[in-house]
Design a protein around this nucleic acid. Structure first.
Lengths: 147, 147
DNA sequence: ATAGTCAGTTTATAAAATAAACTCACTTAA
DNA sequence: TTAAGTGAGTTTATTTTATAAACTGACTAT
């Protein structure tokens, strides 16, 4: 399979990765969740090459994950802000960060975490089942095909 | 920043992506969660080139996400199975699949979903806060530095 | 014997990422 | 009013990665 055919796959994870699964797109989105919203901001923050930054931003806009909002004319310059579709990645980001924090070795002393504004605690996120509210564990999940 | 320096970053998401953020590693892990555990299985399933499959498996083993369990001698052949660290990615996988299912356009009729074994429902996963049990929404989260 | 399986390795080619310089259309400070 | 700065790119040459396809080795099954 070529990477470019992945968006045809019969699996939501594969289709998600067809958009997010390259080396920098996810990092750009992380920055969006941290409040970065301009070309030079991403560039300074990630040290990414301008060429692929341009490609990735265009791709994220085309995929409807980021929206361009002009903040000046002549020349037109845009803020790149998360759409609803982009904000819906919040859960993925939180769980990915939690995995990085707890499972990946060699953590620096100082780390970035999140605070839950409504209850005031530093966030420890977990995934739950909408039907029963219980925490999801790997062994309790089975893949099924739904028509 | 080079990709190879990302594992030094002061952010758990960045460090997680230093392991998972290339074009195929996440897809290999998806297959692991779906029960694939041998070289030829991944190769047939993903159509990935054998060269990078070999690299990615070695990398996942080195990172402690997959474990090699020999199933024959002469020549030694291995099953690649998820370690505890690998299984800890379950939440990320579920949320990524949920995002792909609900947010990405052009869904085929037939889709792969998950069933929660303990309550019997087709799973709709969401992320909750361990402190208060409430569902997490993007606007209620703020990044903080924790020493 | 012959073919098949499994997990690779090798090699040549194609695609993607990178760094660094350059462009354009301004804006601000000297 | 010249000079420097900003912001978002584009261009180009080079390096790095990925790919396809054939090949190897050590078996096993027919």
């Amino acid at each position: 399979m070529r990477w470019s055919e992945l968006d045809q796959a019969d699996c939501p994870i594969a289709r998600a990765l067809s958009i997010l699964g390259d080396r920098w797109t996810f990092m750009i989105l992380r920055d969006c969740f941290f409040g970065v919203h301009r070309f030079e901001g991403f560039q300074a923050n990630l040290g990414i090459s301008r060429t692929i930054l341009r490609d990735r931003l265009a791709h994220l806009v085309q995929a409807g994950i980021l929206v361009q909002r002009p903040y000046q004319e002549r020349p037109v310059r845009y803020d790149y802000v998360l759409s609803a579709k982009g904000k819906a990645l919040n859960g993925v980001m939180l769980m990915l960060g939690e995995w990085g924090r707890t499972a990946v070795d060699g953590q620096p002393e100082t780390q970035i975490r999140h605070r839950h504004q409504t209850c005031g605690h530093v966030l420890t996120p977990y995934v739950a089942c909408a039907a029963c509210g219980e925490e999801m564990v790997a062994k309790d999940v089975r893949a099924v095909r739904a028509g």
